[in-house]
């Protein structure tokens, strides 16, 4: 009985760990790889450790195995979270088939603090409108132009609500306001239009 349980648990555990190895090689981007490896390998390791618990008729070995299970089940999610977060901030690219990046625009690029923009009433009145913060890169083709020259409102149906420059906040900027590299623009518009504007600001599209 003990032997059968051990065999089943070892089979399940090693198979899951093998799947984790397969996932880390085959998945297309870091975040998908992480979802394949961290969960599956932790579960596989847990199964193998349960096999240890069942196989050894020894209290010390049982405690060792349970300690490992507990520690890995606590530490693996934390490790995955911190490395995923660091990867997101360092700009590790998402898979090109990614449909939506819900985190984009919702964190402070300087302090790395997550914040959501709570505008429930606005969203109620204006469906699919989104407020987005964008940091203007130094290489942006639009840096140095005034808002009137860019004419974002007419051309892309997106409005610049405010510009944060260093510690200063320019609210409701006029047409003569010039945007500079490292400015943070707070934009409002429909999600699809915002995507377009962000790629133009970053110099990725024309």
């Amino acid at each position: 009985m003990v032997e059968i349980a051990t065999i089943v648990l070892i089979l399940v555990g090693t198979f899951l760990m093998f799947v984790a190895g397969l996932g880390i090689t085959r998945m297309p981007d870091l975040f998908l790889r992480m979802s394949a490896t961290t969960k599956v390998s932790t579960l596989g390791m847990g199964a193998v450790m349960l096999a240890v618990v069942i196989y050894f008729d020894d209290l010390v070995a049982t405690f060792h195995a349970i300690a490992i299970i507990l520690f890995v089940f606590i530490s693996a999610p934390v490790a995955a979270h911190v490395i995923g977060r660091a990867a997101y901030f360092t700009g590790v690219p998402l898979w090109e088939g990614t449909i939506v990046d819900e985190l984009r625009g919702h964190y402070d690029l300087r302090t790395h603090q997550l914040e959501s923009v709570p505008l429930p009433e606005l969203e109620e009145h204006l469906p699919d409108v989104q407020v987005l913060k964008v940091l203007l890169p130094a290489t942006s083709p639009l840096a140095g132009q005034t808002l009137a020259q860019i004419n974002m409102r007419r051309r892309y149906d997106v409005t610049v609500l405010a510009i944060r420059r260093g510690d200063r906040m320019i609210t409701n900027p006029g047409g003569d306001a010039q945007i500079q590299p490292a400015d943070e623009l707070i934009l409002i518009g429909k999600s699809a239009k915002l995507d377009e504007v962000v790629s133009i600001l970053r110099g990725l599209a024309r």
Partner: peptide, 30 residues
């Protein structure tokens, strides 16, 4: 990217824990 490598190292160490566990079972050495 570097995070890819870190994740790979993390996975390798988890796999090593598994290898040690099955080896402990096979050799009867808790």
């Amino acid at each position: 990217s570097l995070p890819d490598r870190v994740v790979a190292l993390d996975l390798i160490s988890t796999l090593m824990i598994g290898i040690i566990a099955v080896y402990a079972i096979a050799t009867d050495e808790p």
